[in-house]
Computed example of a mutant assay.
Amino acid sequence: MRETLVLNASFEPLSTVTLRRAVVLVMQDKAVVEKAHPGLRIRAAAVDVPVPQVIRLCRYVRVPFRRQAPWSRRGVLMRDRHRCAYCGRRATTVDHVVPRSQGGADTWLNTVAACAEDNHRKADRTPDQAGMRLINRPFEPTPSDSLLLALGVSARETLPEWLPLPA
């Protein structure tokens, strides 16, 4: 099962949490289940809760506006869908387009996902110096894109279980 989507009281997506955390929020009356997995329930001696796909917080949480998504290695791998920027195979590491030894920084526009072989072959050089071509150019995701990437969804996709129920 995927993680549970958490909505603010205003129905804006905030983040995702584990199933365990979602159930705790519901049981503490801090959230309500907006959408549950059909036919699945969590049962215990004094508990009978539907398995949540989407929960909504009961109280509004003020979230400071972010102009940029924070950079992370995990974020780069997700942004590039775990595909090597040089060959397209499965990526397991992050490569700096301009190496750190040449002044390159940990930024969205200077890092790409790479397989270990290509990362090792490129070594401490730029792609031009190594004679390698980038398949896709790095880009900076918006904060909402980074939330979707964390959920494993591209900005152009929506999970059907998170769509509103038909009226």
Rank of each mutant, 00 (worst) to 15 (best):
S72V: 03
A31I: 03
Q129F: 12
V17T: 04
R133K: 14
R79K: 08
R41H: 10
R62A: 15
T16P: 04
Q53Y: 00
A130W: 03
P160F: 01
T111D: 01
P99W: 07
V54R: 11
V98I: 14
R62F: 14
A45R: 09
L7V: 05
L134G: 01
L147R: 04
A113P: 09
T16E: 08
T16H: 11
E12A: 10
D106V: 11
T93E: 12
R74V: 11
V54A: 12
R137W: 02
A123K: 15
P143Y: 09
L57K: 07
V47Y: 13
D80T: 04
R133S: 15
N136V: 03
C87Q: 08
D106Q: 13
W162Y: 14
T126G: 07
D106P: 03
Q68M: 12
Y86W: 10
P13G: 11
N110W: 04
V32T: 15
H37V: 13
T4R: 10
L149R: 02
E3C: 00
M78R: 13
A31Y: 11
P160Q: 06
P50W: 01
P52Q: 07
A22T: 10
R90S: 04
A69Q: 05
S10C: 11
T126N: 01
L19H: 15
V94G: 04
V32H: 08
D95I: 03
R121G: 15
A130M: 07
Q129P: 12
L7W: 07
A45G: 03
C84F: 07
I135M: 09
S144I: 14
R156L: 12
A85C: 01
L163A: 14
V112H: 06
P166D: 09
M132W: 13
T4C: 06
R74I: 11
P143Q: 10
R73A: 10
P70Q: 05
T92N: 10
C84V: 04
P164L: 03
T93L: 02
R156F: 11
P99I: 01
V33Q: 08
V32C: 13
A44T: 15
R133P: 02
L25I: 04
V153D: 06
R67H: 15
V61I: 13
L159R: 13
S101W: 12
L149W: 09
Q28T: 01
P52T: 08
